[in-house]
Amino acid sequence: MNIEHLVTMANDIGNFFTSEAGDAAAPKEVATHITKFWDPRMRSQIIGHSKSGGEGLSPVALTAVGLLVPPVQRD
């Protein structure tokens, strides 16, 4: 998956929840949204990206990705 797109998507979600929920609550809301709507491979990839510095991720998105539970691959 194109990591730039995933970063943009995560930041866009972060923008919404920062204004909706406030700075403190936003990361949890973002993490919930990503968990609810993103396929495991997308989540794995953004988690991997954050672990290697998370270039391009906004502070809220970066914190949110840190809250994600790594998906378990069933294959």
Partner: peptide, 12 residues
């Protein structure tokens, strides 16, 4: 787990 959405399918 949720699956891929259409644009995600193309990306994948």
């Amino acid at each position: 787990e949720p699956g891929l959405r259409i644009p995600n399918m193309f990306e994948a």
